[in-house]
Every structure is written in structure tokens, then in C-alpha cells.
Amino acid sequence: MAQRDWLGLKQELPANRRLVLTVLSFLTPLILWTAVSYVPWLWHPLVHITAPGDVDYFVEDMEVPKADFAKELAKVQAAGGELPQGERVNPVYLPAPHKVARAFYTAFTTEPRLPNEPWLHESLSHSIRTICWGFLISSIFGLPLGILCGTYRFFSRLQEPFIEFFRYLPAPAFGALCVAILGIDDGPKIAIIFIGTFFQQVLVISNTVRKVDPALIEAAQTLGAKGWKLMRRVVIPASISDIYTDMRILLGWAWTYLIVAEVVGTMSGITYFINQQARYRNFDNVYAAIFMIGIIGFTSDLFLAWIGRIIFPWKRRSGSPSKLGAWFAKLLPKKPAPAVPVEA
């Protein structure tokens, strides 16, 4: 089996090859970026002037297009003056990897320029706080409503047609309204994330709950479960691990609403930081901040997936009974089987 193709149709790859490809998926864009940044004849459309020479409008540290520089150089050569000097560079909005990497650290240590400006870690925690509140409030309402809609046709018919309509209304469109109602601080931002999350949440979760195997519910009924107990002991546990996965995906969606939410009212959080840094032309900081959003989102999802494997052990394909459980099992005495009357 080790001799299988790298490109076997719909075939699972061995673990080591999977790892190689995972690393490669991150490495490929990084290599491209590195190449464009450090190989001088790749792209580098501008010339950074180190010595203006006899060109009137050239000054030191100025950046001009490659073609303009060549034209001026040719003119000065023909006139026999002092030649301008420069090196080819990329535009300022494409910083080299090492600059962005350094910015990951320096962005945290650089004091804000304005006295009332937040530090980067303050901006980030502000963003995370906004997301968490929006998602939490959405879940407090969306989770129970979704489960109800998935379980009872009554609630499904009563709620879902409207929600189905409402989810097509773009959340950012409510920006002005939210500011008018909730002021200019965090209220409207949380509201935007709520609007962006809640309606999808109800529909996605109710759909997941509807997919619970009806045979499990029937089996539970023949075992004497009904009403609220049937819901609590069968419907919810049967769908809870899938709901958890839904919540992870929804949290990802909530992140995509963050930037929109943060420009509503007074700009805040990581969006404010990115905007300010772009204004100061600190593009290395801009990239670092964007990547930080990605890293926070991605690692929190990995973390939640890991938690999920712990709290839903029946989803682990190769689980073994817990040691604690086995230890307790030994403590309890075994009783003889029930006595049996009547001939067979």
C-alpha cells in the first residue's frame, strides 16, 4: 500500500505525505512572497534613489518607477552630468517577510503615536471582546431556538420562514440603524455581529437537529422516554457534537463580520489599528495585524476542535474506556442474575 500514487483518485494519503502537503500548503505562498521580496530581478517595479545626481526632481529616499529612472539616467548620461544612483525595490505596500515577522514583535512594543491611541494588544483584546459578546448573545438566543425549530415542526413553521428571509439582509446594511439606536461605542458593533450570526445560527442548528436519526427517537420511546426527557436525553445528546461543529463554523463567520462591525460608529479594535498603520504607511504592521486575525481565528478553532474530541469521546473512532471509569467499575459489587420462573 505504501507504493500508492500521490494522485490516487479519492484515495487517502499516508500520514507522512499528508504532513508534507500540509507544510507545503503554507510554504508555497511563503516561498513566492520571499522570492518576490528578495530576488532583485523579480518584479521590483520601483527604484529607491540613494544619490539624486544631476536629476532636478530626484531627492534621496525617493522612489520612482523603473522606467522613469532609466529615462532620467539616459538623459543625464547624454548630458554628461553626475549619474543618479538607486536600487530596485518593491512598493511600500509589499514589505519583505522579515519586516513583517519583525513587526509581529515590534507592533506590540511600539508606543502609539497619539496619546489616546490604544496599544496593539489593547486593540486585539477589544476585537476579541466584541466577537465574544456578539457570538455569546447570538448563541444565547440562537441555540435554544435552533434546537426547538429542529425538534418541533410548530416552532420550525412559526420561525423559519421569517428567519430565512431576514438572513438575506446584509448585516452591514444595519450599521447606520444600529448606531442610531445603540450609540457609537461597542453596542452597534456587537449588534452587527449578532445580526450576521444569529439568523444563520438558528437555521444551521435546526437543520442539524432535524437530522437526528428518527430510529434513535423511536428506540427511546419504546424505552419509556417522552416529552421533555426525550428532548434532554436523546435529541440534544444525539445532535450536540454536530451542533458543536456548527458553532465552530459560525464563530468563523462571526470573525468575517468583525471588520465591518468595527468601522461602524467610532472605528475600534484591530480595524482601527490597521487603518492607522496604513495611514502611517507602516505596511509591515498592517500585514502583521491581518495575519494575527488569521492566527487567532485558526488556532482558536484548532483548540475548540481539540476540546471537542475530549468532550465527545464517542466521536473518537479509537477510544478506550477511561481509566477512572474502569477503577470505579471494580469498586461496585456484582449481584447475581435475577431468578427465573416458568418453564421455557
Partner: peptide
């Protein structure tokens, strides 16, 4: 039932 219908989340 033919399809076992054990509750997968319970031991």
C-alpha cells in the same frame, strides 16, 4: 430494531 439503534453517545 434491525439497525441496533444504540445511543452512540452512551457507553
Amino acid at each position: 430494531f434491525q439497525g441496533y439503534t444504540l445511543f452512540p453517545w452512551l457507553t
